[in-house]
Design a protein around this nucleic acid. Structure first.
Lengths: 151, 151
DNA sequence: GCCGTTTATCTTACATGTAAACTAATATTG
DNA sequence: CAATATTAGTTTACATGTAAGATAAACGGC
Protein backbone atom coordinates (compact mmCIF):
# COMPACT_ATOMS: atom_id res chain seq x y z
CA UNK A 1 0.00 0.00 0.00
CA UNK A 2 1.81 3.13 -1.23
CA UNK A 3 1.73 6.20 0.98
CA UNK A 4 -1.44 8.21 0.67
CA UNK A 5 -3.13 5.77 -1.69
CA UNK A 6 -6.18 4.35 -0.01
CA UNK A 7 -9.13 2.33 -1.22
CA UNK A 8 -12.61 3.82 -1.01
CA UNK A 9 -13.41 1.55 1.86
CA UNK A 10 -10.33 2.69 3.75
CA UNK A 11 -11.16 6.32 3.15
CA UNK A 12 -14.72 5.87 4.39
CA UNK A 13 -13.52 3.89 7.39
CA UNK A 14 -11.12 6.66 8.31
CA UNK A 15 -13.80 9.31 7.98
CA UNK A 16 -16.18 7.37 10.17
CA UNK A 17 -13.48 6.70 12.71
CA UNK A 18 -12.57 10.36 12.95
CA UNK A 19 -16.18 11.50 13.27
CA UNK A 20 -16.83 8.88 15.92
CA UNK A 21 -13.87 9.95 18.00
CA UNK A 22 -14.71 13.61 17.59
CA UNK A 23 -18.37 13.25 18.46
CA UNK A 24 -18.02 10.92 21.39
CA UNK A 25 -15.01 12.85 22.66
CA UNK A 26 -16.97 16.07 22.59
CA UNK A 27 -19.93 14.47 24.34
CA UNK A 28 -17.64 13.01 26.97
CA UNK A 29 -15.99 16.37 27.45
CA UNK A 30 -19.32 18.10 27.97
CA UNK A 31 -20.42 15.62 30.62
CA UNK A 32 -17.01 15.54 32.27
CA UNK A 33 -16.99 19.34 32.58
CA UNK A 34 -20.47 19.35 34.12
CA UNK A 35 -19.56 16.64 36.62
CA UNK A 36 -16.41 18.51 37.60
CA UNK A 37 -18.09 21.87 37.97
CA UNK A 38 -21.16 20.62 39.80
CA UNK A 39 -19.83 17.74 41.87
CA UNK A 40 -16.05 17.93 41.80
CA UNK A 41 -16.01 14.45 40.27
CA UNK A 42 -15.06 13.18 36.85
CA UNK A 43 -16.38 10.48 34.53
CA UNK A 44 -14.12 7.76 35.92
CA UNK A 45 -15.44 8.35 39.41
CA UNK A 46 -19.02 8.45 38.15
CA UNK A 47 -18.34 5.17 36.41
CA UNK A 48 -17.06 3.60 39.64
CA UNK A 49 -20.04 4.82 41.66
CA UNK A 50 -22.40 3.61 38.96
CA UNK A 51 -21.02 0.08 38.92
CA UNK A 52 -21.07 -0.15 42.70
CA UNK A 53 -24.62 1.18 42.88
CA UNK A 54 -25.85 -1.67 40.69
CA UNK A 55 -24.57 -4.20 43.19
CA UNK A 56 -26.53 -2.75 46.08
CA UNK A 57 -25.12 -4.13 49.35
CA UNK A 58 -22.98 -6.89 47.86
CA UNK A 59 -20.12 -4.78 46.68
CA UNK A 60 -17.41 -5.81 44.23
CA UNK A 61 -13.82 -6.92 44.48
CA UNK A 62 -11.22 -4.61 42.99
CA UNK A 63 -10.78 -6.91 40.01
CA UNK A 64 -14.50 -7.30 39.31
CA UNK A 65 -14.92 -3.56 39.51
CA UNK A 66 -12.00 -2.93 37.15
CA UNK A 67 -13.49 -5.38 34.66
CA UNK A 68 -16.78 -3.49 34.52
CA UNK A 69 -15.44 0.01 34.16
CA UNK A 70 -15.88 1.59 30.76
CA UNK A 71 -12.81 3.74 30.97
CA UNK A 72 -9.92 3.19 33.34
CA UNK A 73 -8.69 -0.33 33.91
CA UNK A 74 -5.21 0.72 34.84
CA UNK A 75 -4.13 2.05 38.16
CA UNK A 76 -7.42 1.61 39.96
CA UNK A 77 -5.69 1.36 43.34
CA UNK A 78 -5.00 5.08 43.53
CA UNK A 79 -8.44 6.03 42.27
CA UNK A 80 -10.15 3.90 44.92
CA UNK A 81 -7.79 5.27 47.60
CA UNK A 82 -8.72 8.83 46.74
CA UNK A 83 -12.42 8.02 46.62
CA UNK A 84 -12.17 6.25 49.96
CA UNK A 85 -10.38 9.25 51.44
CA UNK A 86 -13.27 11.38 50.18
CA UNK A 87 -15.63 9.09 52.10
CA UNK A 88 -17.42 7.83 48.97
CA UNK A 89 -16.74 4.13 49.46
CA UNK A 90 -15.59 1.46 51.88
CA UNK A 91 -12.95 -1.20 51.41
CA UNK A 92 -13.06 -4.34 53.57
CA UNK A 93 -10.71 -7.34 53.47
CA UNK A 94 -12.41 -10.52 52.31
CA UNK A 95 -12.64 -13.39 54.77
CA UNK A 96 -12.37 -16.30 52.32
CA UNK A 97 -9.56 -14.86 50.22
CA UNK A 98 -7.08 -12.73 52.05
CA UNK A 99 -5.64 -11.34 48.82
CA UNK A 100 -8.94 -9.72 47.99
CA UNK A 101 -11.05 -6.73 49.12
CA UNK A 102 -14.70 -5.84 48.87
CA UNK A 103 -15.49 -2.32 47.73
CA UNK A 104 -18.87 -0.86 48.65
CA UNK A 105 -20.64 2.48 48.39
CA UNK A 106 -20.85 4.52 51.57
CA UNK A 107 -24.10 6.36 52.31
CA UNK A 108 -22.39 9.54 51.20
CA UNK A 109 -21.31 7.85 47.98
CA UNK A 110 -24.80 6.55 47.32
CA UNK A 111 -26.37 9.97 47.88
CA UNK A 112 -23.82 11.61 45.64
CA UNK A 113 -24.37 9.05 42.90
CA UNK A 114 -28.12 9.56 42.95
CA UNK A 115 -27.72 13.29 42.55
CA UNK A 116 -25.15 12.88 39.81
CA UNK A 117 -27.24 10.35 37.92
CA UNK A 118 -30.29 12.61 37.87
CA UNK A 119 -28.32 15.57 36.64
CA UNK A 120 -26.47 13.43 34.15
CA UNK A 121 -29.69 12.17 32.59
CA UNK A 122 -30.83 15.75 32.09
CA UNK A 123 -27.53 16.87 30.55
CA UNK A 124 -27.35 13.94 28.19
CA UNK A 125 -30.93 14.40 27.07
CA UNK A 126 -30.07 18.03 26.31
CA UNK A 127 -26.92 17.12 24.40
CA UNK A 128 -28.80 14.62 22.25
CA UNK A 129 -31.88 16.76 21.71
CA UNK A 130 -31.22 17.18 18.00
CA UNK A 131 -31.70 13.46 17.40
CA UNK A 132 -35.21 12.10 17.11
CA UNK A 133 -36.23 9.12 19.19
CA UNK A 134 -36.41 6.65 16.33
CA UNK A 135 -32.94 7.47 15.03
CA UNK A 136 -31.65 7.24 18.56
CA UNK A 137 -32.94 3.68 18.97
CA UNK A 138 -31.62 2.59 15.57
CA UNK A 139 -28.30 4.12 16.34
CA UNK A 140 -28.02 2.44 19.74
CA UNK A 141 -28.80 -0.95 18.28
CA UNK A 142 -26.35 -0.43 15.46
CA UNK A 143 -23.55 0.52 17.84
CA UNK A 144 -24.27 -2.39 20.10
CA UNK A 145 -23.96 -4.84 17.19
CA UNK A 146 -20.87 -3.14 15.82
CA UNK A 147 -19.22 -3.33 19.22
CA UNK A 148 -19.98 -7.00 19.68
CA UNK A 149 -18.32 -7.81 16.38
CA UNK A 150 -15.24 -5.86 17.32
CA UNK A 151 -12.60 -8.07 18.84
CA UNK B 1 -37.32 14.48 38.78
CA UNK B 2 -37.44 11.79 41.48
CA UNK B 3 -34.51 9.38 41.70
CA UNK B 4 -34.61 6.64 39.13
CA UNK B 5 -37.67 7.95 37.37
CA UNK B 6 -36.73 8.90 33.85
CA UNK B 7 -38.75 9.73 30.75
CA UNK B 8 -38.52 7.46 27.74
CA UNK B 9 -36.43 10.06 25.97
CA UNK B 10 -34.00 10.22 28.86
CA UNK B 11 -33.71 6.46 29.00
CA UNK B 12 -33.00 6.23 25.28
CA UNK B 13 -30.52 9.09 25.50
CA UNK B 14 -28.67 7.34 28.28
CA UNK B 15 -28.56 4.07 26.35
CA UNK B 16 -27.21 5.78 23.26
CA UNK B 17 -24.67 7.70 25.29
CA UNK B 18 -23.38 4.57 26.96
CA UNK B 19 -23.16 2.61 23.69
CA UNK B 20 -21.36 5.51 22.03
CA UNK B 21 -18.78 5.79 24.77
CA UNK B 22 -18.29 2.03 24.88
CA UNK B 23 -17.92 1.61 21.14
CA UNK B 24 -15.68 4.55 20.46
CA UNK B 25 -13.67 3.81 23.59
CA UNK B 26 -13.08 0.27 22.45
CA UNK B 27 -12.12 1.38 18.95
CA UNK B 28 -9.76 3.96 20.37
CA UNK B 29 -8.24 1.36 22.66
CA UNK B 30 -7.62 -1.04 19.79
CA UNK B 31 -5.86 1.59 17.73
CA UNK B 32 -3.93 2.97 20.70
CA UNK B 33 -2.65 -0.52 21.55
CA UNK B 34 -1.52 -1.09 17.96
CA UNK B 35 0.26 2.26 17.80
CA UNK B 36 2.02 1.58 21.09
CA UNK B 37 3.06 -1.92 20.18
CA UNK B 38 4.18 -1.16 16.65
CA UNK B 39 5.55 2.36 16.92
CA UNK B 40 5.91 3.20 20.60
CA UNK B 41 3.54 6.11 20.08
CA UNK B 42 0.02 6.77 21.27
CA UNK B 43 -3.05 8.41 19.77
CA UNK B 44 -2.20 11.89 21.07
CA UNK B 45 1.16 11.77 19.36
CA UNK B 46 -0.39 10.42 16.16
CA UNK B 47 -2.85 13.29 16.33
CA UNK B 48 -0.04 15.84 16.66
CA UNK B 49 1.92 14.34 13.75
CA UNK B 50 -1.23 14.23 11.65
CA UNK B 51 -2.05 17.91 12.15
CA UNK B 52 1.51 18.95 11.41
CA UNK B 53 1.67 16.80 8.29
CA UNK B 54 -1.32 18.64 6.82
CA UNK B 55 0.56 21.91 7.03
CA UNK B 56 3.51 20.67 5.01
CA UNK B 57 6.40 23.10 5.49
CA UNK B 58 4.47 25.92 7.13
CA UNK B 59 4.19 24.44 10.58
CA UNK B 60 1.86 25.55 13.32
CA UNK B 61 2.18 27.62 16.46
CA UNK B 62 1.62 25.82 19.74
CA UNK B 63 -1.79 27.44 20.12
CA UNK B 64 -2.95 26.63 16.58
CA UNK B 65 -1.83 23.05 17.04
CA UNK B 66 -3.60 22.73 20.38
CA UNK B 67 -6.80 24.05 18.80
CA UNK B 68 -6.79 21.37 16.11
CA UNK B 69 -6.07 18.39 18.27
CA UNK B 70 -8.97 16.02 18.79
CA UNK B 71 -7.83 14.88 22.17
CA UNK B 72 -5.50 16.73 24.46
CA UNK B 73 -5.73 20.49 24.69
CA UNK B 74 -4.21 20.65 28.13
CA UNK B 75 -0.56 20.45 28.90
CA UNK B 76 0.71 20.36 25.35
CA UNK B 77 4.06 21.84 26.37
CA UNK B 78 5.29 18.60 27.89
CA UNK B 79 3.99 16.49 25.03
CA UNK B 80 5.82 18.62 22.45
CA UNK B 81 8.97 18.60 24.58
CA UNK B 82 8.99 14.82 24.69
CA UNK B 83 8.29 14.54 20.98
CA UNK B 84 11.06 17.01 20.23
CA UNK B 85 13.43 15.04 22.41
CA UNK B 86 12.51 11.97 20.36
CA UNK B 87 13.47 13.92 17.25
CA UNK B 88 10.00 13.91 15.75
CA UNK B 89 9.55 17.66 15.46
CA UNK B 90 11.28 21.01 15.55
CA UNK B 91 10.41 24.11 17.53
CA UNK B 92 11.65 27.47 16.33
CA UNK B 93 11.02 30.88 17.89
CA UNK B 94 8.91 33.12 15.68
CA UNK B 95 10.55 36.27 14.32
CA UNK B 96 7.50 38.54 14.31
CA UNK B 97 6.15 37.46 17.67
CA UNK B 98 8.67 36.50 20.24
CA UNK B 99 6.01 34.95 22.48
CA UNK B 100 5.32 32.34 19.87
CA UNK B 101 6.94 29.25 18.41
CA UNK B 102 6.56 27.38 15.16
CA UNK B 103 6.30 23.60 15.41
CA UNK B 104 7.25 21.56 12.38
CA UNK B 105 7.70 17.91 11.51
CA UNK B 106 11.25 16.69 11.26
CA UNK B 107 12.13 14.26 8.46
CA UNK B 108 12.08 11.49 11.00
CA UNK B 109 8.65 12.64 12.19
CA UNK B 110 7.31 12.75 8.64
CA UNK B 111 8.59 9.26 7.86
CA UNK B 112 7.14 7.90 11.04
CA UNK B 113 3.78 9.52 10.38
CA UNK B 114 3.59 8.05 6.89
CA UNK B 115 4.23 4.58 8.22
CA UNK B 116 1.75 5.03 11.03
CA UNK B 117 -0.94 6.40 8.75
CA UNK B 118 -0.74 3.48 6.38
CA UNK B 119 -0.92 0.94 9.16
CA UNK B 120 -3.68 2.87 10.84
CA UNK B 121 -5.84 2.84 7.71
CA UNK B 122 -5.49 -0.93 7.53
CA UNK B 123 -6.33 -1.46 11.20
CA UNK B 124 -9.35 0.81 11.10
CA UNK B 125 -10.67 -0.83 7.97
CA UNK B 126 -10.37 -4.17 9.75
CA UNK B 127 -12.10 -2.92 12.88
CA UNK B 128 -15.01 -1.55 10.86
CA UNK B 129 -15.29 -4.51 8.50
CA UNK B 130 -18.67 -5.58 9.84
CA UNK B 131 -20.28 -2.34 8.61
CA UNK B 132 -21.27 -2.08 4.95
CA UNK B 133 -20.16 0.93 2.97
CA UNK B 134 -23.57 2.55 2.71
CA UNK B 135 -24.22 2.38 6.44
CA UNK B 136 -20.78 3.77 7.03
CA UNK B 137 -21.44 6.84 4.91
CA UNK B 138 -24.85 7.45 6.50
CA UNK B 139 -23.39 7.08 9.91
CA UNK B 140 -20.53 9.48 9.23
CA UNK B 141 -22.89 12.13 7.93
CA UNK B 142 -25.21 11.64 10.86
CA UNK B 143 -22.40 12.03 13.38
CA UNK B 144 -21.07 15.11 11.66
CA UNK B 145 -24.47 16.82 11.88
CA UNK B 146 -25.03 15.72 15.45
CA UNK B 147 -21.66 17.09 16.44
CA UNK B 148 -22.24 20.46 14.82
CA UNK B 149 -25.46 20.87 16.77
CA UNK B 150 -23.72 20.05 20.01
CA UNK B 151 -22.49 22.96 22.13
C1' DG C 1 5.49 56.83 24.23
C1' DC C 2 2.95 55.17 28.65
C1' DC C 3 -0.26 52.02 30.82
C1' DG C 4 -3.63 48.67 31.29
C1' DT C 5 -5.34 44.66 28.80
C1' DT C 6 -5.00 40.79 26.06
C1' DT C 7 -2.47 36.92 24.15
C1' DA C 8 0.90 32.89 23.83
C1' DT C 9 3.17 29.98 26.26
C1' DC C 10 5.06 28.01 30.36
C1' DT C 11 5.06 26.34 35.16
C1' DT C 12 3.17 24.05 38.93
C1' DA C 13 0.47 20.77 41.39
C1' DC C 14 -2.21 17.19 41.16
C1' DA C 15 -5.45 13.33 39.11
C1' DT C 16 -5.47 9.83 36.03
C1' DG C 17 -3.80 6.24 32.44
C1' DT C 18 -0.17 2.60 31.09
C1' DA C 19 3.12 -0.92 31.79
C1' DA C 20 6.01 -3.69 34.33
C1' DA C 21 7.82 -5.54 38.39
C1' DC C 22 6.70 -7.06 42.97
C1' DT C 23 4.27 -9.37 47.07
C1' DA C 24 1.31 -12.33 49.23
C1' DA C 25 -2.17 -15.77 49.02
C1' DT C 26 -4.28 -19.43 46.62
C1' DA C 27 -4.51 -23.24 43.32
C1' DT C 28 -2.36 -27.02 40.92
C1' DT C 29 0.52 -30.68 39.98
C1' DG C 30 3.25 -34.40 41.07
C1' DC D 1 3.11 -32.37 51.38
C1' DA D 2 6.52 -29.62 48.35
C1' DA D 3 7.40 -27.21 44.17
C1' DT D 4 5.43 -24.51 40.85
C1' DA D 5 2.00 -21.71 38.63
C1' DT D 6 -1.66 -18.62 38.91
C1' DT D 7 -4.25 -14.86 40.81
C1' DA D 8 -5.34 -10.29 43.38
C1' DG D 9 -3.73 -6.39 44.39
C1' DT D 10 -0.05 -2.98 45.13
C1' DT D 11 3.94 -0.34 43.90
C1' DT D 12 6.80 2.18 40.89
C1' DA D 13 8.03 5.04 37.09
C1' DC D 14 6.57 7.59 33.75
C1' DA D 15 3.21 9.85 30.10
C1' DT D 16 -0.71 12.36 29.79
C1' DG D 17 -4.87 15.35 31.16
C1' DT D 18 -6.81 19.40 34.01
C1' DA D 19 -6.77 23.74 36.26
C1' DA D 20 -4.83 27.79 37.97
C1' DG D 21 -1.53 31.06 38.12
C1' DA D 22 2.92 33.22 36.32
C1' DT D 23 5.59 35.49 32.70
C1' DA D 24 6.72 37.95 28.91
C1' DA D 25 5.47 40.05 24.60
C1' DA D 26 2.17 42.46 21.82
C1' DC D 27 -1.83 45.43 21.42
C1' DG D 28 -4.77 49.51 22.01
C1' DG D 29 -6.44 53.67 23.98
C1' DC D 30 -4.88 57.88 25.57
Amino acid sequence: MPNGQYTQRQRESLKLWIELIRYSGKLEQIIDDKLRQNFGQNISRFDVLSQLEREQENGLSVGELAGRLIASKGNITGLLDRMQKDGLLTKVAKEEDRRSYIINLSDKGRDLFNQMADNNATWIEEALQSIDLEHMQDFTQFLSKARTSLK
